[in-house]
């Protein structure tokens, strides 16, 4: 299982970050950023595989790829915004983190509007 080395390295990094936080808080922040990036890079392969399976299912189901594309985009935006917000909140910048999340919500809203419109149109077609 790959989770063991991952957690081990993360704990070691966390200890080093605590050691660094007294003298050099900025380097401690960079260290926690590196650990976060490291974890994601080691897991992204699996996300790619899951996305591929979803894509095949959608194709077989005959549903248009637009909806899956939108869902994937929203998940991607949500992930990156959360990543940035957590890192800046760790660094003590709560206000900046809130702004990042606010911007992400707006972008997700913009992406979701076409899907909502499509659903409404489908419903209207049903009504005689």
């Amino acid at each position: 299982m790959e989770i063991l080395p991952l957690v081990g390295i993360t704990l070691a990094g966390a200890v080093l970050a605590v050691v660094l936080r007294q003298q050099r808080p900025e380097l401690a922040m960079l260290l926690s950023l590196t650990i976060a990036v490291f974890i994601f890079l080691s897991v992204v392969g699996r996300i790619g595989a899951v996305v591929q399976v979803l894509r095949d299912l959608v194709e077989r189901a005959g549903v248009s790829m637009f909806y899956l594309g939108t869902i994937l985009k929203i998940v991607g935006i949500a992930y990156i915004a959360d990543f940035g917000a957590q890192i800046s909140r760790d660094a003590g910048e709560g206000a900046v983190a809130a702004k990042i999340e606010f911007a992400a919500k707006i972008m997700i809203l913009v992406l979701a509007v076409p899907v909502v419109v499509a659903v409404l149109e489908a419903v209207l077609k049903l009504v005689p």
Binding site: L30, L33, T34, V37, F38, F40, L41, V44, I47, G48, V51, G69, L72, K73, V75, G76, I77, Y79, I80
Partner: peptide, 21 residues
Amino acid sequence: LFWVVPLLARLFEQVKTVFRL
């Protein structure tokens, strides 16, 4: 920073390709 920034760029690149962003 010199070490971390290319790593961050790689992360964003991976996210862009995986989520088609």
